[in-house]
Nucleic acid binder design. Structure first.
Lengths: 210, 210
DNA sequence: TAGATTGTTAATCGATTAACAATC
DNA sequence: TAGATTGTTAATCGATTAACAATC
């Protein structure tokens, strides 16, 4: 996995994977870049380029073998049928993610949930017992967890991130609006609805005045 | 608003805005691109370039006036202190967004919530009464709503999007994994946690094998 | 074989970064 | 004025798109 893929390509591979899974489910065995292009509204040339990064995966004249590509992309993205993750901060959003079927469908299983609110600790949501933050290091080590979802309030974010880092977490999906400061070997990926909403608002407004 | 800004710049303007607001709150009146660069871990040259798109907003030798920039960026992004939006699909995620203080803090007010589940209709969450989807067109027209959050199950997404479009909605923040098909004058912006999670997983895995 | 479609090279486009003259 | 920092131009980088020979 030395040759790093362009980040936009990585995100599109996730999209292709979903499409291929859908096609496989419907019994389609091969699809051309043109066909996939029509489904996803992505240029066929971009699809071919992206798929060529992961090897010669297609067959000229025939298209791409759906089953094989599912395997190959999953491999490239490091996906396994079961990827254990933890979630810290069981507020409204945390609870929603805990209950989300989407994460589970994609193989991400929230096996531990943590909060500092004593009124929540010990309770169970969606089969996951909520534990105190102080239990994070032990849990992460015991289950070999690499990834964490951070859904605490902003004020607790940096402090909690530090707990995660020292517990040995390698990647944080950060739903808080805070800029986390972590060592370079820990990857943080920010998800901020409000920025997406502001972006959409801009799109809509700038369109108006064209 | 003719000169379209580069999309990555638009997203960063949202980030700058948050930083400026924080600085203003702490009584800081001016900040240099270098100073902001350290706070946000974004190259100073990128900050200057981005801010130059929205006019000559800084003062050489002194930096950028925080208050003025807040005004200017809000104007460019089309932000108002109150932007009414609706939410369709009051499941776990929908409820979490309804309860989210973050959206409210950024000026986005969910003034209407819709679902098809009769057991939910008529109930109130966070001061918002849940109505049947059939009430969308009337509501959108009455309150002049432009933006909608779509948090229905995937199977209902396309159908619901069509209701939104015919109701006159101009922008949809799509939290479903579906590829919505809408007329070109309607903007859709997709938010997909699972793709972000897969991206993070890739980052962590490809780092391992470097 | 003929037709379809990949895989790849080269061209283009767009965004980031470097550098520095302008100027507060 | 001298020092700091912007605003902008040019260089670089990286991703997208076009084009087409290779080949199934």
């Amino acid at each position: 996995m030395k040759n790093k893929l362009p980040p936009p390509t990585v995100k599109r591979l996730s999209l292709y994977l979903r499409a291929f899974e859908g096609l496989d489910h419907r019994g389609v065995t091969h699809i051309s870049s043109k066909g996939l292009s029509e489904i996803l509204e992505i240029p066929d040339t971009q699809i071919r380029k992206g798929l060529s990064f992961i090897g010669k995966t297609g067959r000229r004249g025939k298209g791409y073998p759906v089953r094989d590509l599912i395997q190959r992309i999953r491999e490239i993205l490091g996906l396994k049928s079961y990827i254990p993750i933890i979630l810290v901060g069981v507020g409204n959003l945390g609870t929603a993610l805990l209950a989300s079927k989407l994460m589970k469908q994609r193989g991400f299983r929230i096996v531990g949930a943590f909060d500092v609110d004593v009124s929540k600790i010990g309770k169970k949501f969606c089969d996951v017992r909520i534990q105190d933050d102080s239990k994070i290091p032990e849990f992460v080590k015991e289950y070999g967890i690499k990834l964490a979802i951070l859904t605490t309030p902003g004020e607790a974010a940096q402090h909690t991130a530090e707990i995660l880092v020292s517990a040995g977490i390698s990647g944080i999906l950060n739903f808080t609006p805070e800029n986390l400061s972590v060592p370079p070997y820990v990857k943080v990926h920010n998800v901020d609805f409000t920025i997406e909403m502001e972006f959409l608002n801009y799109l809509v407004n700038s369109e108006d005045l064209e």
